[in-house]
Design a binder for these strands. Structure first.
Lengths: 243, 243
DNA sequence: CGAGGGTTTGAATTAGATCAACTCTCGTGG
DNA sequence: CCACGAGAGTTGATCTAATTCAAACCCTCG
């Protein structure tokens, strides 16, 4: 994994700079730490980049690192012995990964778009948490938010129809403001493949494709390309999503 | 909700006693707090009992309380407008509920067996967390554990067959040591109804029933009564559960 | 321009749902 | 004590949403 480096801004202290100017700071747990203390954080983080298709967390491996995504997007998934896959979530800027209690990771993570991340060793993270209680609080909040999202996803996987699942997925992207180049608007960028969407929604690629086609023929969405979807009728889509 | 009370042990300070002698202390986050500080904890907790069928957390209600289950069992679930239900988990002794970031609960909770619980107001819990960093750490661990369980459940709901789901469920109960009267052994007590099991596994009651019958006819389990199941072949069951 | 992946569409199949009947258990009251 | 009824659970027959199998149809890139 290549170590990410950025030329220091002249006149600013080198150790502070990477965190102070980090694009992800606003969305990440790091914003619990005051400017003056960012040097401590930066000293503990190892910044690296992961290319699309590369796995940077492997289910079952010793869980000795924690990751903070600062750019790009990744998929988190679990595999069964015969290859069946369930994508449990997508991680983007600001997401924190690998907070395992067990000694090993419970899921794998693979970059979809080029990912930039900060890696913390287990020991160092816990040292940071003790040093900055506000950071620990933010982490707890983050975990609680993830838990709520997980429960919503269980409802989707256990009880929703294919149509409702796809609508929920699009609605989620819309609410996340997943426009192309980070812009918001009716157009959504889908960085993941149909296969990823299918494994996230507990469906097959064929069913996802068919369902999208049907939503298009009904005028709810447009599909200018396989990786772009325009929401024509957000209200009807949201209604569909909730049954 | 009736307030639970227990006669104070003669000679022990009243404010300390309830937590010090609590059956759930070993399994609960409260074990992060030293004996000497239990008075603070007890002062903040309101103990109450909930009867089977009673709902003590309602999805969408203001999330101003946190609950620590000290006895009994409860189901956590989300409902759709048309009545479809997904049970996202079962909570027993030691479980902590209601850690919402949002202003409202994301799920409902209903007692299956009589539940005894400690209720903390939002304000008081956060005061406790600041006062006892070890408590916050335990809560973070707990949340991380729940998250891992949620991911496992997503794999089950999204990718496993009915047979694998039921086997996973029984294997989970077995590993949790869910014997009758808290005993461990090959016999499992199922306090929840078939309908609850179905809504937990994303199946119908008929499919759950049929699948259990089939596992019985294959000699993997015995079903002495609707609420008791004997695991005859734990290894084969576990193998089935993972595909 | 052609190869190869990802995607879409079509036809056949099936796991699980739905609809319906029956059984078991347990509590109630004659 | 036993008949009765209600609710939970089981079993059977049928149906259907989604999967599977199969064949095009793109794009993109050498």
């Amino acid at each position: 994994m290549a170590v990410f480096s950025r030329p220091p801004i002249p006149g600013s202290p080198l150790s502070l700079e990477p965190c102070l100017s980090c694009d992800a700071r606003a969305e990440s747990v790091c914003n619990a730490i005051a400017d003056a203390d960012l040097g401590r954080l930066a000293a503990y983080a190892v910044v690296s980049e992961v290319q699309p298709g590369q796995t940077f967390i492997e289910e079952g491996d010793p869980a000795d690192s924690f990751f903070n995504i600062t750019a790009g997007s990744a998929k988190l998934y679990k595999l069964m012995a015969d290859g069946r896959r369930q994508i449990t979530g997508f991680a983007i800027r600001g997401h924190f990964l690998g907070l395992a209690v067990s000694a090993t990771y419970a899921f794998s993570a693979e970059a979809i778009e080029p990912v930039r991340l900060c890696r913390f060793s287990r020991v160092r993270l816990f040292r940071l948490l003790s040093e900055f209680p506000a950071l620990e609080r933010r982490l707890l909040e983050r975990a609680a938010t993830e838990l709520v999202a997980a429960q919503e996803q269980m409802l989707l996987l256990g009880r929703k129809t294919a149509r409702e699942r796809v609508a929920s997925f699009l609605d989620m992207l819309r609410r996340a403001g997943a426009g192309p180049c980070g812009r918001t608007g009716p157009t959504l960028a889908l960085p993941m493949s149909r296969s990823d969407v299918a494994d996230y929604l507990g469906l097959t690629i064929e069913t996802v494709s068919r369902t999208l086609s049907r939503l298009r023929s009904e005028g709810l969405i447009e599909i200018p390309s396989a990786t772009e979807i325009v929401i024509r009728d957000p209200a009807r889509l949201a209604a569909l999503a909730s049954g």
